[in-house]
Design a protein around this nucleic acid. Sequence first.
DNA 1: CAAGATACATACTGGTCGGTATGTTGTGAA
DNA 2: TTCACAACATACCGACCAGTATGTATCTTG
Lengths: 198, 198
Amino acid sequence: MHSDADATRRSLLEAAYEEIHRFGFQAASLNAILDRTGVTKGALYHHFGSKLQLGYAVLDEHIAEELERLWFEPLRQPGHPIDVLMETITRMGEHYQCEEITLGCPLNNLAQEMSAIDDGFRERIDNLYKRWLLSIETLLIRGQQEGSVAVSIDPADTSYFILASLEGCMSMAKNAQSNQELMRCGKGLMSYLSSLRT
Amino acid sequence: MHSDADATRRSLLEAAYEEIHRFGFQAASLNAILDRTGVTKGALYHHFGSKLQLGYAVLDEHIAEELERLWFEPLRQPGHPIDVLMETITRMGEHYQCEEITLGCPLNNLAQEMSAIDDGFRERIDNLYKRWLLSIETLLIRGQQEGSVAVSIDPADTSYFILASLEGCMSMAKNAQSNQELMRCGKGLMSYLSSLRT
DNA sequence: CAAGATACATACTGGTCGGTATGTTGTGAA
DNA sequence: TTCACAACATACCGACCAGTATGTATCTTG
C-alpha cells in the first residue's frame, strides 16, 4: 500500500505535534508517538531522519499552517484594524478552550524550551515570530494610513508589545490552568488596544 | 567536617538552580550537578529526598529569595508608583545582561515546563505569582489613594496585565537572544505604564 | 571512651531513551 | 517476468537516567 505513505507521514506529524504540545520536545517520547499511531520505529525513521528532523517538520508544516489559519489570514481581512485584532484574539481565546489552554501556545512553548538549545529550532521559531509581527504591523500601518489608528505610535514597536503581551497572557493562563485568568488578562490587552485608536 | 553540611547543601542548590535555568527541570541532569559541584550522589540524596524535592527547594529558597530581592522589596519603596515600577523594571533589564537574557525568566521557565505536569511545582509557582501580583497591585492602590494613578483602572486586572506583558517581553527577548528586543518591548511596556498616570 | 547519628562516598540497578542493523513485503518501471 | 526501490517491520544497542544498597569516616552526646 504505497499510497498510504503520505497518510503515515501525516499521522506521525499529528501525533508528534500533540506529544510535543503536551510534554515539550525533549520530553516527548518517540515510543509514545509510535504507540499512539500504531506505526513502527522503522517507518518513523524512514520518513524522518531523526527526532530533531521530526520536530522541525512539526514546526515547518503543522504549526506554521495553524498560525496561518488562525492569525495571518484573519488579520488580512478588511475592517477597522483594532476591531480586526480584537476579533482575532477573541476567536483564538475561544479556540483554546478550557482544556487546551493549560497546554499553552505551541509556538511559545517550543520557543521557551528549545531556542536556547538548538539553532535549527531557534531560526524556525524566529522566522514564524517575524511573520506574526509583520502581519500585525501591516494591519497597524493600514490603520494609520486610513486614519483609524493613532499616527503617534510606532507600528513595529507596538506590534512587538502586542505580541509579547499576548504570549504573556497565554503563559499566565497556562500556569493558572484556567481561561478565567486568560479573560482577565485579555481585558487589559483589549483596553490597551483601544488606546491605539484615533 | 560536619560544619560544611550547610555549605554542601547550598552548593547543590546553586548548581541545581543554574542547571535548571539553563536546561529546564526535566532535562537537568543530577550527574551534571554533581560534576559541577564535586559532590557525590550519596551526599545529594542525603540532603534531598529526590530530584523533585531538589527542584522544590530551588523554588522555595533560591528563586523566592531572588524575587524578593529584585521585585518585592524595590516595589515597597516610596515615590511615584509608576516611577517605582519603571525603575524596578529597568533595573531588572540591567540585571539580565546580554548572556543571561537568553535563558529567560527562571520562574516563567519553570511555570511553562512544570505547572501542567506536577502539582507541587504548580502550587509553588502559583504562590510566587500571587505574591508578585500583590506587590504590583499594592503599589497601584497606593497610587490611586495618593492621586498619582488613574482611579479608572482596576488594580488587580491591571497588575495581571503588567506582569503578563513583562513575562511576554522576556519570553520574546529570550527567543530573539538579544536584549535589544527586550528594550524594544520595554518601550511598549513603559508607554503603557505611562498611560496609567493621572 | 562508647555508641549512635550525621555526612558523606562508591558501586550498582532497572528502565527508558534515541538510534540502527537487518529483514520483509508490496509496487511500479523496464 | 524481473528487479530495483520504497515502505515498512523486528530486534537489538549503548548511553544516560534517577534512584538505591551498602560501606565509611567524623562528630556529638551520654
